[in-house]
Write a protein that binds this DNA or RNA. Structure first.
Lengths: 186, 186
DNA sequence: CTGCAAAGTAAACTATGTCAACTTCACCAA
DNA sequence: TTGGTGAAGTTGACATAGTTTACTTTGCAG
C-alpha cells in the first residue's frame, strides 16, 4: 500500500504519506505526538517539506480530524442503512465503538484546540456527520428534538467516559456488555 | 486578594500566585495559553522560578485540574445536600452548569493529555469527585448501576457537546431551557 | 551572630514550528 | 530537441518555550 520508494527528489504523494504516518502516530501517542519534524523524518523528507501541503501543524491536524469525521459519518450511515432503526441502539453502539476503535482520532475530532482557530473545513465535516445522526433520529417537534439530544448526549458521554477510563468495569464484565447494558436503559 | 507587592527577592506565595494567574489564562485562552514563561512574567519572577514549585508544566496543569475536581466535587455535594434528590435533575444541572461556567477548567480536568502521564494526584481527585456522584445516585444491583451510568453519561455528554457548541440552540431558546428540556427526558 | 536551606536569578541547551532563499525535475509549448 | 516554468523539496536560520545547571539572596534556627 505504501507508495513505491521512488528515490527521486520528488516524493510523489507526500500529502497522503504524511497523513498516513500521522494517523499511526496519533493512535500510538496522541495528538501531542504528531510532530511535523517526526512525520517528515518518517517519510524521508526534509523538515520543511510538509509546508508544501499544509499551512501549519494545525492545518494537518484539521485534515486528520476531517478524515475522522468522514469515516465516522460513513460508519453511522452504514449502520443506519442496514437496520430499520427500531431503536437507536445499533446506532449508539456504532458511535461508541468508533470512539473505542479510534481513540486518538476521536479525541482529535472533538479537540478544543482545533475548535479555537475557526476552521471551516472541520466545522463542515462535523456538521455533515451530525446531519447523518439528525436525519436518522428524525424529530421535528421540540419534544422529539429534546429526546434526540438526550440520546446523543448519552451516547457521546458514554464514549468519552469510556475512552478516559472513568467508568470502572465490574469484574467479569467486558466493555461490550457494559455498553449494551447502558444503552438498553430507557 | 493579590499578595502585597513585596519587592523582595522572595515572592512569598509564588505557588498560589502562579496557579491563580494560570486559572485566569486557562479560561481566557485555553490550555495551550498556559505557558510557564508567561505565568512567570505575569507574577514578576524569572522564567525558571516556577520550577521551585512545579516539576514541569504538566505538573502545574495537574495541580490546576485537581483544583478543578475539588471545586466540582464541592458543587455537587452542595446540591446533593440541599435537595433530597427526588430526581437526579438538580445534580445533573449542576454538573452541566459547572462545565459551562468553567469551560477551560472543565476541559482540562478531562484532558487526555494529562491522563497520559499517569498522575496519581489527578486520578485521586477525579475519583473523589465521582465518588460523590456515585454516592448520591446510589445503586448496588447491576440494573441500578447501568441506570446510574446512563444518567452520568447523558449529563457528561450534554456538558461536552454544549461546551464545544455542537448542539445548535433553536432560536428563541436559551441554554437553560435546553438543559432542562433534555434532562427532563426519561 | 552564623550558617544553612529554601526560593529566586541568570544564562544556556534543546526541540519544534516556521520561514526565506535556493534547487530539482516533470512537463509542455515552440 | 530544447528551453523555461512552476510545483515540490532542500538547506539553513530564527523565535519561542520548556527545562537544567550553577550561582545568589535571604529568612530563620541554633
Amino acid at each position: 500500500m505504501s507508495t513505491s520508494p521512488s528515490l527521486s527528489y520528488h516524493h510523489g504523494d507526500l500529502r497522503r504519506a504524511l497523513l498516513e504516518a500521522a494517523l499511526v502516530i496519533l493512535e500510538r501517542e496522541g495528538e501531542a505526538g504528531v510532530q511535523l519534524r517526526d512525520l517528515a523524518r518518517a517519510v524521508h523528507v526534509s523538515p520543511a517539506a510538509p509546508y508544501r501541503h499544509f499551512d501549519s501543524r494545525a492545518a494537518l491536524l484539521e485534515a486528520l480530524a476531517v478524515i475522522g469525521f468522514q469515516r465516522f459519518s460513513r460508519k453511522l450511515e452504514d449502520v443506519a442503512a442496514s437496520g430499520p432503526a427500531e431503536t437507536g441502539m445499533p446506532l449508539g453502539h456504532a458511535y461508541v465503538r468508533f470512539a473505542l476503535d479510534n481513540p486518538g482520532l476521536f479525541r482529535l475530532m472533538f479537540s478544543s484546540q482545533l475548535r479555537k482557530d475557526n476552521r471551516p473545513g472541520l466545522r463542515m465535516a462535523a456538521d455533515a456527520a451530525f446531519a447523518t445522526l439528525r436525519h436518522v433520529m428524525g424529530g421535528n417537534t421540540q419534544g422529539q428534538r429534546n429526546a434526540a439530544i438526550s440520546q446523543w448526549a448519552r451516547v457521546h458521554g458514554l464514549a468519552v467516559l469510556l475512552l478516559d477510563r472513568h467508568i470502572a468495569l465490574p469484574d467479569g464484565q467486558d466493555v461490550e456488555q457494559l455498553i449494551a447494558g447502558v444503552l438498553a436503559q430507557p
